[in-house]
Design a protein around this nucleic acid. Structure first.
Lengths: 129, 129
DNA sequence: CAGGATCCCGTGGGATACTG
DNA sequence: CAGTATCCCACGGGATCCTG
């Protein structure tokens, strides 16, 4: 039912439906590995195995799942070069690249949060640093 | 949308551990009802039943869980007025209030996303409008 | 190389009922 | 009013092995 979205500052967050936009954004990036995948793709396109090596601990099944979802959500693009050995590259779409400011702000808040809740560090620390 | 990013742009996202900050922020707001609770609390403190009435469909158990987690995460504060009938108020902490810009940016991105993926609307639409 | 196919499991969250 | 106490289940995600 809600179609046009008046994204003005005054109406922000007033309307029930506007909350959905936040939930939608959340749904798109809330996967276990998605922000990490986004980070890997920020510098440029990456191949499947490059991603898998970067994301230490992820299985190929899960990586495939996350990539497929992100592709369906329109934030990454999958390019299959029909050649042997197989070569597939994943890259951010414009929409995906527009997540950068969001991630940046989340990072800022998160850093502040972690500084105040040091005991909560360990659950977010990557194993591979 | 802000394509130009503020200050510490160089350090952002370079380090493994900086990704954790994003994941941490995500973990704090990723609950099924948390952004909705945040929105309810933005105008000011709310009582338990006020929240439950606003969040149509939530059970008291789940509401309690989400509130407890958010309290533990330091983004809301629980004030128990020891009086009868029982009265407990939940309010944002300063840290919680600092999520506002994050939510705002997520809302902007989400609106853009929903505009491009109209078929995905329904899964985010609230039932109570 | 880039996945598919299976099997498996913890847990976030829902439904319902009860209580100080 | 502001919660507990149980029971329950889907599903996101992990582990392992297989393939065009």
């Amino acid at each position: 039912m809600p179609t046009d979205l008046p994204v003005s500052y005054e109406t922000f967050w007033q309307d029930e439906r506007l909350a959905c936009a936040v939930s939608a954004a959340l749904g798109v990036i809330a996967g276990r590995w998605k922000v990490l995948i986004l980070r890997e793709l920020l510098p440029g396109a990456q191949r499947f195995n490059q991603l898998q090596r970067a994301l230490v601990g992820i299985s190929s099944k899960v990586l495939t799942e996350q990539l497929r979802q992100m592709e369906q959500d329109g934030i990454i693009h999958r390019q299959d070069f029909a050649e042997l050995p197989l070569r597939v590259e994943y890259a951010l779409t414009p929409l995906g690249r527009q997540l950068h400011p969001v991630l940046h702000l989340m990072h800022q808040w998160g850093s502040d949060y972690l500084a105040r809740q040091p005991q909560r560090w360990e659950q977010w620390v990557s194993q591979d640093d």
